[in-house]
Design a protein around this nucleic acid. Sequence first.
DNA 1: ATAAACCCTATTTTTTTTATAGGGTTTGTA
DNA 2: TACAAACCCTATAAAAAAAATAGGGTTTAT
Lengths: 137, 137
Amino acid sequence: MLSKKTKYALHALTYLGKHRDEGAVTIHDISEEHGISHKFLENILLELKKAAMLGSKKGKGGGYYLIKEPSEIPLSKVIRLLDGPIALLPCVSLNYYEPCAECKDEASCGINKVMIQVRDETLKILENKTLEDILKE
Amino acid sequence: MLSKKTKYALHALTYLGKHRDEGAVTIHDISEEHGISHKFLENILLELKKAAMLGSKKGKGGGYYLIKEPSEIPLSKVIRLLDGPIALLPCVSLNYYEPCAECKDEASCGINKVMIQVRDETLKILENKTLEDILKE
DNA sequence: ATAAACCCTATTTTTTTTATAGGGTTTGTA
DNA sequence: TACAAACCCTATAAAAAAAATAGGGTTTAT
């Protein structure tokens, strides 16, 4: 399951996508709309900004706004940023690889092989679904 | 990512699959082979047994053994048993449904709709990959 | 009889997630 | 130019979940 961080990020991105033509949107607006703690949401929006999905404007009248087309924000990117690996095991993660302690030899491990296949097929799904798909529903 | 519980379960099932023609296999053997805590593994094997994937034989010379064909043990079943939902959000889980607090109306939520699609496509993968695929690698 | 092995429940420890705290900096507007 | 609204940053605390441990009980082949 996705963490609340990722779930909130998706709600925030969706909100920003819906209000794209209204200029900057405040944290306050988003947290009110979805009943998310202001401070918690703030951390999430900062992470999204660092990852170059959002821009922001300081000062009175400021807020956050999308700086990418919704079609260029795949679920895989959001999930990796807030939740970490998409792979089911560390030993098959592309971005967060770590060997598994209980596996003596990765090359001869059937679990490893199958999980690579699962990872690749899962990635296909999550790279193809974007914020645009969420917005058009 | 899968919990260690699920990962250990997969290793145990694989081990049992490989030694299917040798009768019952002890917890001890499996925990030695993979360096897994005996007691922790014991709990996992008990869960697999309650879920009718394994049989066991008590007393001296006893142990655990598969009671299903490896092709009849899909990853989805193991993951659901030890880790819980496969869906990315509680509001789209088939087996562990719960409404999402920050979503006012599920019917009009684009996130919900897209996550249903992701769930269905993910399930296809995890229902088709079975212990047999792990064993034949 | 006995030792080997499964069976069961509860508790503790550790890790991760979630949330909070407390300020600092920037900037539009009156 | 004061001020308030809003973003920016780091650290810490609280809560929940995962991982591991503990301590016995029951069954059964030899």
